[in-house]
Design a protein around this nucleic acid. Structure first.
Lengths: 217, 217
DNA sequence: TACATTTGTGACAGCATTGTCATAAACGCA
DNA sequence: TGCGTTTATGACAATGCTGTCACAAATGTA
């Protein structure tokens, strides 16, 4: 989707363009996010943006793909077979998620935003697709694990998946409240929400996993 | 906040003004919600709105207060002392919540929107306050009930409250996915999301309560 | 150096928004 | 009916946004 021109840009310039754009789309909805603010922040001209991308949606789609790819690279290193129980595996996924957040706070915030706070009509269809994929992923996990007794078969699959997704995605918010971390302030400083709280996060994940497994076993 | 003029309006006109405004603010963020669309839908002039309210924020604040008051009237009829266990009480609260949604789909959607999807800077501070109150309410419940063994004392209060709030507020989304209800479509028809699904909702609440109590006991 | 290609620029049109205000219409009452 | 008060109107200024395009600057190449 980005033009050849954008891809040929010096890495430094391309990278700062991405970071500033991620920040803008993390702090605003698609509709209220402003190309004007991006170019002002970067000190480049309006025309450049439209030489890199066809339009605002093109830019947004590129950022989405970029952030998803970056996250995947972090998380896909965790393999089920390396863990005895599903819940050990699950815990590790969320620790790796924290690593990702530490390394890429803007990507992380952007993904969180589009998954749970973005409601603009123009981009809704792309997000629905994302949610369906996440649901499918959890569904496969649970179905696979049900054979070895990690999950109570009396509870409907729909409910189990819903329960897990809901709790999983609430981790960020928990930290925000629990440690009174000002998420947006952290983003503005290009700093991860978890930077000062990685051990507290680890503890919270333990507690969550314990509660989840108790509820669903 | 609304002017005398607005309060003196014939009930029918005032009511339709509220409904159309609720719809607009339910389908859009504060920033993208458009007074132009509201007046077009109502067939009134631009000046009228600004004779009723000082500005867009004034209108939004009135709608918020109106919706909260309407919800309170529905839910406050449930009393803890009428139920043997906390979970029976809790279940009834959510059934009453469904009643509220049935009777006031637009209020319901609006409240859901501002509590979990509204991220515009101009109104964020008013919403934060709302979230703090909800948290406080749950906290009092849990502390009160911990003395009679409904909640495991090993789990931190923070985590219990977070768990309950998260799951509770996910009910609407669960229905959306589980029954493939198009929420926005329902709202557009002035119809509650639960109208055709009240028994399914009741079942979902039962399942949720069962899972929650198992996890937290 | 001289020419070709690529990249950067910012004024501009077109559109949508909010809040204002002078004026018109409707209403209430004597 | 006639007059004073209340309510409704919509043109308007001010602002901000996106996407375009003719032109300028920079870079690569021969």
């Amino acid at each position: 989707m980005p033009s050849k021109t954008f891809l040929n840009l010096p890495k430094e310039k391309r990278e700062s363009f991405i970071q500033v754009s991620l920040k803008e789309f993390s702090e605003n909805n698609f509709e209220t996010a402003s190309v004007n603010r991006i170019i002002k922040e970067l000190g480049i001209s309006r025309g450049s943006v439209y030489q890199y991308f066809t339009d605002k949606l093109g830019l947004w789609l590129y950022l989405k793909e970029h952030a998803e790819k970056t996250k995947m690279e972090n998380v896909q290193s965790v393999n089920r077979e390396d863990f005895d129980t599903f819940w050990d595996y699950y815990r590790e996924l969320y620790i790796k998620g924290a690593d990702f957040d530490l390394l890429n706070p803007l990507c992380s915030k952007f993904l969180y935003k589009i998954a749970y706070q973005e409601s603009s009509k123009e981009v809704r269809k792309y997000i629905n697709n994302w949610k369906i994929q996440a649901d499918q992923q959890f569904r496969e996990w649970v179905q696979y694990e049900q054979s070895n007794g990690s999950f109570n078969s009396d509870i409907s699959l729909d409910m189990i998946v819903h329960f897990m997704i809901t709790i999983s995605t609430s981790l960020v918010e928990l930290l925000q409240n629990k440690f009174l971390v000002d998420f947006d302030q952290h983003i503005k400083n290009d700093k991860s929400i978890l930077a000062d709280n990685i051990s507290a996060y680890s503890k919270a994940v333990d507690e969550i996993v314990s509660l989840l497994s108790k509820a669903l076993k």
